[in-house]
Design a protein around this nucleic acid. Structure first.
Length: 405
DNA sequence: CTAGGGTTAG
């Protein structure tokens, strides 16, 4: 019933692959290529002789994501199915990648069918493919189906669930808003002697907080610590997430507690602190957190720039906001449309026309065409036209910087 | 050893 589509069909999806490129070249190209057809073209031009499994998986994953974003499900099917002709299909990790890719695209039925085909393809089954199937299930948002698979698959195919399988089951209960079922499963793991890691713990801890049950969450934390579980930065970040709406001192205290416990606060931890300062109109403190990131061995991420620039605009510090915006462009982490609109409107209001025009030039180069349609309205609202003479003249320092980036 | 958790919205 399942016909395996020949590899040559993959070529039909893309235009001619002119030259061979290395997997690392493909990866960097794919990261910035959002056109699904071009992504396919890049993928099919890879000479895969020396590609590591991790690299190929990443390139494949990016390609599928581009197609999924454009809802090209028939092409996703052709693309993934073509991989079943690869001799590596008898290797379980390779096949797992296909199952996960279907899951990411919300195509759980295809993932299930691929799992069922394993006998026919000659691929041995272990908890690895079982876990890939469960992951596909949660990624397809079919959380209610996970417990069912958990009941059926192990007996049917002789695979035994491991700590990861149980972790996914727990996650699915949490997503379904049933932390009590998740805790029940945790007790079952304890009975069976299956290791409870920081990952499993954090899933439940977060779900309890999310349900508004902070006290139970804290009790759960304490119980787990007593049992010897080693909480990590991600677990602390959940805690921080639920206190960052209040007093910045609480966030600061938790970050210190983390450091004292020998953990390294990461960008997410510091972002919560920065946001907390912003909300409390303590912009100098917020900027200090941003400027201190590097010294704390952290890099600002897209959210760091987006949030800080937004709040700087709210406090009408457009100079500082513009400076930080330029930095975000240098590291390719440009904020979203709305934040940029706030900034350009503020710059114009303060008659900082050189900066406003610099920003507009950058936006035109960095935003996708469909967003630029809306952006044109912003420009018109500000009385700035696109056919500006300055734009075509000698590049200023903004453009020079971008050219070397 | 990989897989499963936390991504912060003004």
């Amino acid at each position: 019933m399942s016909s395996l589509i020949p590899l040559r069909h993959l070529r039909q999806l893309s235009t001619t692959a002119k030259s061979s490129i290395s997997i690392s070249q493909a990866k960097s190209k794919l990261r910035t290529e959002y056109d699904p057809d071009k992504a396919l073209e890049i993928y099919s031009s890879v000479s895969e002789h020396y590609a590591s499994p991790t690299s190929s998986r990443y390139a494949q994953d990016l390609t599928v994501r581009r197609l999924a974003k454009s809802h090209r499900f028939a092409d996703i099917e052709k693309f993934i199915e073509s991989h079943k002709n690869d001799p590596k299909i008898t290797q379980e990790p390779f096949l797992c990648t296909l199952i996960r890719s279907y899951g990411r695209s919300g195509m759980f039925d295809h993932a299930m069918r691929t799992f069922d085909q394993m006998d026919q393809l000659g691929t041995p089954r272990s908890s690895l493919s079982f876990n890939a199937l469960l992951t596909a299930c949660t990624n397809s948002k079919q959380f209610e189906k996970v417990p069912q698979l958990f009941d059926e698959i192990p007996n049917k195919h002789g695979v035994s669930p491991d700590k990861v399988s149980y972790g996914i089951l727990i996650k699915s209960y949490c997503e379904a808003g049933k932390p009590e079922k998740a805790i029940e499963t945790l007790r079952l793991m304890e009975e069976k002697g299956i290791e409870i890691t920081a990952v499993t713990f954090t899933t439940i801890f977060n779900a309890l907080y999310k349900k508004g049950n902070g006290e139970e969450a804290e009790n759960f934390w304490n119980e787990m610590v007593k049992k010897g579980i080693e909480v990590d930065a991600a677990a602390y970040n959940v805690k921080i997430m639920y206190v960052h709406g209040g007093n910045p001192d609480n966030v600061k205290a938790l970050i210190e507690e983390m450091a004292n416990a020998g953990l390294k606060p990461d960008t997410i931890s510091y972002n919560y602190l920065m946001i907390c300062y912003c909300r409390n109109e303590m912009m100098e403190e917020a900027i200090k957190v941003y400027e201190g990131l590097e010294g704390n061995a952290c890099n600002p991420n897209a959210a760091t720039f987006r949030t800080l620039i937004f709040y700087l605009c709210s406090s009408e510090d457009y100079d500082k906001a513009y400076k930080i915006f330029k930095r975000s462009v240098e590291v390719h982490k440009i904020p979203d449309f709305n934040t940029m609109r706030h900034l350009v409107e503020g710059l114009v209001k303060k008659k900082k026309m050189k900066e406003a025009k610099g920003l507009i030039r950058t936006i035109k180069k960095k935003f996708p065409p469909n967003v630029l349609v809306a952006w044109k309205k912003v420009e018109e609202g500000l009385g700035l036209t696109s056919s500006d003479r300055n734009a075509s003249s000698v590049p200023d320092d903004d453009e020079a910087k971008e050219a070397t980036a």
